[in-house]
Amino acid sequence: MGEEVIAKKSYPKRLDAAGKAPMKGRSMHINCTLDSLAKLKEKIGEDAYSQIRDQSKVGVLLKLADSSFVWWGKLVHHLLTHQLAISRPYEIWCLIEGSPIRFSLHEYEDITGLNCAEIDVEDIVAVDHREFWGDLKVAAEKGPNWNELESALKSCRSWSLEKRKMLGLLVVVHVGILGISRSSRIPLDYAKRVLDTEAFERFPWGRVGFKELITSIKVLSYDRTSYAIHGCPHVLNI
């Protein structure tokens, strides 16, 4: 019998050498807080909340907020600090107990069920948003930030079901999809989609959310005592 040759698998080197991963003294900051999403029910009302949760494609985020899911930041931190050095901009590979695992748009889509199709640059929403933006007390040429949305949530119970639902969707996009800082604004083109149900539901929010998450991971620096993750990092924890 000829000598059996077993090919040895090789993987890219780690971003941080074994035993050198910056684990201690680092804290993770996230803007996608499930508590903020769960509180929507009492703010916009059960009727508007239920319509988003049960009828909208982004309702999966409210279902996650309503579940008994427990956020475990240490696990996500462990994954991020055990990455392999790869050049693909929209993938991360992590080495866990000697085995590499991949996180890409495919895994994100499988986990969330969100629409992750390519963005159609010609899909432009032409709606007059000025009246609703006036209710939100947001300048017409800007998308809302969290502080403006939070202020509207305190006084929206007398609004129509349609307007309360639109406000709820803006909160889901800001907190659950983009996961951006409280002072950052939802891009105006994204925000206006809440006024057109069909335009909102056909938009690939999953691709948008994934890009926010993966981009924030790619630019991470552990030089400081804390770092921030955009998007919905809970996906890495499921």
Results as ranks from 00 to 15, higher is better:
residue 85 A to E: 12
residue 73 G to T: 03
residue 102 R to T: 11
residue 46 E to P: 01
residue 147 N to A: 14
residue 151 S to Q: 12
residue 92 I to K: 00
residue 77 H to D: 05
residue 140 A to P: 06
residue 174 H to Q: 13
residue 85 A to N: 11
residue 103 F to G: 03
residue 105 L to D: 01
residue 47 D to E: 13
residue 44 I to R: 06
residue 88 R to E: 08
residue 45 G to R: 07
residue 36 S to L: 14
residue 73 G to Y: 01
residue 121 V to T: 14
residue 37 L to P: 08
residue 75 L to V: 05
residue 175 V to F: 06
residue 150 E to C: 03
residue 131 E to I: 12
residue 48 A to N: 03
residue 152 A to G: 11
residue 125 V to W: 02
residue 89 P to R: 11
residue 142 K to L: 15
residue 99 S to C: 09
residue 33 T to F: 12
residue 85 A to I: 02
residue 44 I to F: 03
residue 66 D to F: 01
residue 76 V to N: 02
residue 153 L to W: 05
residue 40 L to W: 05
residue 70 V to F: 08
residue 136 L to G: 12
residue 49 Y to N: 00
residue 49 Y to L: 01
residue 43 K to Q: 08
residue 64 L to Q: 13
residue 141 E to K: 14
residue 70 V to M: 10
residue 66 D to Y: 02
residue 61 L to H: 02
residue 51 Q to P: 00
residue 40 L to T: 09
residue 45 G to L: 09
residue 118 E to R: 10
residue 94 C to A: 12
residue 66 D to Q: 09
residue 37 L to C: 11
residue 35 D to G: 13
residue 54 D to V: 08
residue 93 W to L: 06
residue 177 I to N: 06
residue 169 L to I: 07
residue 136 L to D: 12
residue 86 I to Y: 02
residue 107 E to N: 12
residue 111 I to W: 04
residue 39 K to M: 13
residue 166 M to E: 04
residue 61 L to V: 00
residue 36 S to W: 11
residue 68 S to E: 15
residue 169 L to N: 05
residue 45 G to Y: 04
residue 143 G to C: 04
residue 96 I to P: 00
residue 51 Q to T: 11
residue 67 S to Y: 05
residue 156 C to Q: 03
residue 82 H to F: 03
residue 104 S to E: 09
residue 140 A to M: 04
residue 133 W to V: 10
residue 173 V to Y: 01
residue 109 E to K: 15
residue 104 S to V: 04
residue 173 V to M: 10
residue 46 E to L: 13
residue 81 T to D: 02
residue 115 N to W: 09
residue 63 K to L: 08
